[in-house]
């Protein structure tokens, strides 16, 4: 026996703290959550206000002992290969609008848009993951606990969803959804489809885990005490699934963020006036644009940070949730 009894969350937190990467991820996650909550307030500009198109990021300089910024201006000369105008900060006075990450093809400030987009991108992922987790949990737990014919049929359903070729489906979707559909309607359909195709992997995991939990000796002991099905599921199986679900959520969230940005790249992002990281990356689909204005890829950094943060937290959680 150890000296003092410890509660489960406390044990998990102690073990989580042992992972440096996990803590780093957690800090990153808090920052991202801050962006999602207070993005519009943090944004230096109105995300729809137009400045000079494709303006490169401002340079930070020290002028008169104070921090200032310089926007590179056209020099009047052209690149001999691409024939693009060359810009330089030489001889340009500090001042002008601050674009830390430059502007897009309509001249909108990318940093502002990325901060505002955080709410939609992360919120969309949260909603989708909540739906997939709920569906996966229900289907998986039912199949795993009931077994028999129900299990066989649900497993075939899981196989069907997993076997579905998702990429061509998403591409076809772009063509099928009526162009006249409003931004909100389009968003709802996108969420519904991501949720409908995303639950199967989790359902399969939950099913396997429920099956092994239902065969545990302590479940047998509970049956021997006369426990009902609902008591066994709620008291003996669900709490032992919780840690698994928590980890699955932290690993699925970045997957949805990634999918959303990827679909945006394919031209299947949310519709304006909504802003998401995926939509911002739609601009980056043109190689010419990336070649001349690489800063339009900046939302990738946000996606990258999200995936990194969630994966680090998820990995640390996975190690921490089984303290026994």
């Amino acid at each position: 026996m150890t000296a003092a009894p410890q509660s489960y969350p406390r044990l998990v937190w102690q073990r989580f703290c042992r992972s440096g990467l996990g803590l780093f991820g957690l800090v990153l996650l808090v920052l991202l959550a801050l962006c999602a909550v207070a993005g519009p307030a943090l944004a230096p500009h109105d995300p729809d206000r137009r400045f000079a198109p494709f303006a490169p990021p401002s340079r930070l300089v020290i002028a008169d002992g104070r921090l200032a910024h310089v926007n590179p201006a056209p020099t009047g000369r052209f690149d001999p290969v691409t024939l693009e105008p060359l810009r330089s900060t030489a001889g340009v006075a500090p001042g002008g609008p601050l674009h830390l990450l430059g502007t897009d093809r309509f001249g909108r400030d990318i940093l502002s848009r990325a901060l505002v987009a955080a709410r939609l991108s992360l919120g969309l992922a949260l909603v989708v993951v909540m739906l997939t987790t709920l569906t996966g949990l229900l289907v998986g737990a039912t199949a795993g606990y009931r077994g028999g014919a129900i299990d066989r049929w649900l497993c075939r359903l899981i196989d069907l969803v997993l076997a579905f070729p998702q990429l061509p489906f998403y591409l076809a979707l772009g063509a099928i959804i009526p162009i006249t559909l409003g931004a909100t309607g389009f968003l709802l359909i996108l969420v519904a489809i991501m949720a409908a195709l995303g639950w199967a992997g989790l359902a399969r995991e939950v099913r396997a885990r429920t099956m092994s939990l239902a065969r545990m000796d302590y479940v047998r002991a509970a049956i021997a005490l006369g426990a009902s099905d609902s008591r066994i599921v709620l008291r003996h199986i669900a709490p032992n699934l919780a840690s698994h679900l928590l980890v699955s959520i932290t690993l699925n969230l970045p997957a949805v963020v990634l999918l959303e940005s990827f679909l945006g790249f394919l031209g299947l992002a949310v519709k304006p006036p909504l802003i998401s990281w995926g939509l911002m990356l739609q601009d980056a689909a043109s190689f010419a644009a990336i070649g001349t204005s690489p800063w339009i890829l900046a939302p990738v950094g946000f996606v990258f940070a999200t995936v990194l943060a969630f994966n680090a937290v998820g990995d640390a959680l996975r190690d921490a949730v089984d303290p026994y």
Binding site: D217, R220, A224
Partner: peptide
């Protein structure tokens, strides 16, 4: 059930850790 009870073999698996 309360009149007939069972003690299982593996003391690690027969108690719900939570």
């Amino acid at each position: 059930r309360p009149r007939m009870q069972i003690v299982l073999q593996d003391p690690h698996a027969s108690l719900n850790p939570r």
